[in-house]
């Protein structure tokens, strides 16, 4: 890719103006039933970016020409890296808490693999999705998971479309859905409430907050304990979740996808 396009001032100025505007709008909380719909600046930035995309509205080619828009693709890979560095810096200082948190916290990360056991077969066999299903179901599609897909396949690949779709859905409805689901499952009284608190930690910050708040509402007596468990679990998700999704979840998803696709193709061969 031409360096001139990668460093095109119109692109970067557009991103700066967009980001500052999105940050200025700030976090918007919309109360909805028992939970809260939480809108973050990165969601507005994405929407504004799409609105100025010359491939969607050709008149925008006057602001950002198409070749410049194409150059933005590889830039995403690089732009996510400072965020990853910032993110790692929240883990280092808390290393003692993480070690003290114990094996239950570490092993519950493996529960994330539950993601693909339900969602992947449904996506491939019922919805007949292609490789988007890999990006969509290998993880819960938060920022570190996006970084992995971006690094391995690129965000403009089918896998990238899959994870960005789940990411956008998660950003828009994830907080609400987590709050509703956690409150409901807690009311069923099947699983230990502390286990539910740890499970809250799998999401992004706003999901964790809504999820553990919903649990605390359900069992007001143990509020502090539940928030601590959810917080520690969330820290671990960020600390170890990256490696679990990279070394276990993604290869397993690829393998299961091939299996599921393979069985479908055999059926097709039998009935031509």
């Amino acid at each position: 890719m031409d360096l001139k396009l990668l460093l095109d001032w119109r692109l970067h100025l557009m991103v700066i103006v967009t980001s500052m505007f999105a940050e200025w709008i700030g976090i918007v909380r919309i109360p909805l039933g028992p939970g809260t719909l939480l809108l973050l600046p990165l969601l507005y930035a994405f929407i504004i970016g799409v609105l100025f995309n010359p491939h969607l509205f050709s008149v925008m080619g006057k602001v950002i020409p198409k070749p410049v828009s194409n150059a933005a693709g590889p830039i995403i890979l690089i732009a996510i890296l400072p965020f990853i560095a910032k993110f790692g810096s929240t883990i280092g200082p808390a290393i003692e808490q993480i070690i003290a948190a114990g094996p239950a916290l570490i092993l519950q990360e493996l529960g994330n693999l539950g993601t693909m056991l339900i969602a992947l077969p449904f996506a491939v066999l019922v919805l007949k999705m292609g490789r988007e299903a890999i990006g969509a179901t290998y993880s819960i599609a938060r920022e570190p998971n996006i970084a992995i897909i971006s690094d391995r396949y690129g965000l403009r690949s089918p896998e990238g479309i899959g994870i960005m779709g789940v990411y956008v859905v998660g950003t828009m409805f994830g907080t609400l859905y987590f709050a509703l689901m956690a409150g409901y499952i807690a009311s069923l009284d099947i699983l230990d409430i502390r286990a539910l608190a740890m499970a809250c930690g799998v999401g992004s910050g706003s999901m964790v907050a809504a999820c553990s708040a919903a649990l605390a509402e359900a069992v007001p007596g143990s509020r502090d304990e539940l928030l601590a468990f959810a917080g520690a679990s969330n820290l671990l998700t960020y600390a170890t979740g990256l490696y679990i999704s990279l070394f276990i979840a993604l290869p397993v998803t690829e393998w299961m996808y091939k299996r599921l696709k393979g069985s479908r193709q055999e059926v097709r061969h039998e009935n031509p």
Binding site: S19, L42, S69, N70, I75, I76, I80, M164
Partner: peptide, 13 residues
């Protein structure tokens, strides 16, 4: 992370 999503929105083809 806000600018990353701005790049992403502009980069879609």
């Amino acid at each position: 992370v806000t600018p990353v999503l701005a790049y992403a929105g502009l980069a879609l083809t």
